[in-house]
Design a protein around this nucleic acid. Structure first.
Lengths: 331, 331
DNA sequence: CTGAAAGCGCTTACAG
DNA sequence: CTGAAAGCGCTTACAG
């Protein structure tokens, strides 16, 4: 592997000059520049990004720590982050905590050790309390993605309240007042927001939310299947609609519905957040709140770039709107 | 940020000793070691991975260049790679070529510049001819993932021929001899293998494959929709089954089927490679060849680790078996 | 307009 | 058992 010294000696100049030519960081005589470029080509020289990073303050790389335990929206967020990073000439270091706070912490440490310029984090449920403090200690810029916090830090997520309000509107207008909310792990901020948004929306419209129509805290599709199954079998008031707050929860709930032999939308209306891919091709066609996942990822990178450009810029909190795809499952 | 010099002076030892304690690379008196560890904790020292990498031959990082233009199996492969990398203490640098050879090449260059220890590549359709040569030039170990080549290099993919044979068996046994194969971009080796596997399997069973029952070369779901629509409208021999070789192709084909008002499996049988998530929950329930995508990713990392451990080990080519999920769409 | 040299934070022969 | 010092491949004041 040719180094800058090889290029310099072949071109008959100092390494300073080679460096300045490569980085276009001070004026160099056209003829000298040409000699350098010729030497670069002749040696097949490629600048060592590691050595370069060591001398500069930045590495031109960012870290993404995502908590993806099977939610397809996260794959799109990763795509968005990757694409935006590439456009900014940044390398992307990816780690998945899979909802495990210990993995999350060690991923963050590894990324800090690698001196990434900044971090994007979709935190795990039960994320370690000191995690963000730790990053701040290192004065490393970071952006929260999808799973936001009530903190004065850059973050980008979706507007869960308005989406939930629209969905509740749609269902109640359609005559559904007994809505079973399958809300999952409420330590996850996005799920908590949907849960709160549901209660607010119902209250504002004058509807009660009986205890028996809440299924919360389940984490896997399997446990959701069981819980929803139990609720549907109980003698208590039965729902006329089910609203699942994630793909995993929707899968578990839908399986329970089918297991009971109930038809959607015949016996029960059904709506979901995130939802299934190509859901217009299959029955039941499920009304879905579709997150702009790719754009979330892109926006996170843009927020991070903005922060890197201006460390003292005011905090920015972005809420993108979801699109609701209304389908036959709620007609 | 504390450096090794800070730790050394606080502990009253040389930086050599600190380094040797941290890496456990030569004997150090227990008492000295203790002083070093105390200093490490007191300063909150964390070793700079960049500086470390510069002196050593390895960076403890690997690069993954994937060509994901919307195929969900790739998300699972990335998961598998990420998890296995983390288990080996490796950081993962991710890039997506999205089937664009130019992006692929620049991603590979960026990863080489960052001195990753090795590369895992799922190549783009029409991948640049010199790509693998370029990596070899740098003597950088690499593993081909999913999209294999007829080369003497480490690679891991699925056994497309046997899967296709089983599927053709299933369909022909069920009375389907007029099978419309939707095979996509044949420059993609996995799609080419399925295409070849189909022809071999049909020939071996004594069935003809008329030209009018081949839909090849489409890349998007939209163009597939159009092409399949045309074939279904033509006056030529009509298929009794459709076999789509990827999720994207299946989506386009299925949409065309529905657009024609045809029922699956009533009017047409339907089977797909890769396929849709949670497909047991929705109608039509589609017979699917499910790739072991997560394990493919894991295996790629393991192959790479093996190669790093022994550069002169014989080449290994792994073919994992897919599972076929038989469902009502082909009954 | 260009170069000599220091230095980023580590690891690792070399020496005792 | 431990330390002084070279060196990885760059960038960047400093100097002329």
């Amino acid at each position: 592997m040719a180094t800058i010294v090889d290029v310099a000696s072949l071109a008959g100049v100092s390494t300073s000059t080679v460096s300045h030519v490569l980085n276009d960081t001070r004026h160099v005589e056209p003829e000298t520049r040409a000699r350098v470029m010729t030497a670069v080509r002749a040696t097949g020289y490629r600048r060592d990004a590691l050595a370069r990073s060591m001398r500069r303050t930045r590495t031109d790389s960012i870290g993404l720590v995502i908590s993806d335990a099977g939610e397809p929206a996260f794959a799109d967020m990763v795509h968005g982050v990757e694409e935006a990073a590439a456009q900014h000439g940044l390398s992307l270091l990816l780690a998945n905590s899979a909802e495990d706070p210990a993995r999350e912490l060690s991923a963050v440490e590894a990324l800090l050790d690698r001196r990434v310029d900044g971090l994007i984090i979709a935190r795990a449920a039960g994320s370690a309390a000191g995690l963000l403090e730790r990053i701040r200690e290192e004065k490393k810029p970071f952006v929260l993605l999808d799973r936001l916090a009530n903190l004065d830090v850059d973050q980008v997520g979706v507007n869960n309240h308005s989406a939930m309000a629209a969905l509740v509107d749609h269902l109640t207008t359609g005559g559904h007042q007994r809505i079973l909310l399958v809300s999952g792990d409420l330590r996850v901020s996005s799920l908590r927001e949907r849960y709160d948004g549901f209660h607010t929306a119902m209250r504002e419209r004058g509807f009660e939310v009986p205890e028996g129509l809440l299924c919360e805290g389940t984490i896997t599709a399997a446990s959701t299947f069981e819980q929803v199954g139990k609720l549907l079998s109980s003698s208590a008031e039965q729902p006329s609609a089910i609203l699942a707050c994630s793909t995993l929860l929707a899968a578990g709930a839908l399986r329970a519905v089918q297991h009971k032999g109930l038809q959607v939308p015949g016996n029960l209306a059904f709506a979901a957040f995130d939802g299934f891919t190509y859901s217009d091709l299959f029955e039941p066609q499920i009304t879905t709140v579709r997150q702009p996942a790719f754009r979330l990822g892109e926006s996170a990178v843009n927020l991070l770039m903005r922060r890197l450009g201006n460390p003292s810029a005011p905090t920015k909190i972005l809420r993108l709107d979801s699109e609701i795809e209304f389908r036959r499952s709620t007609q």
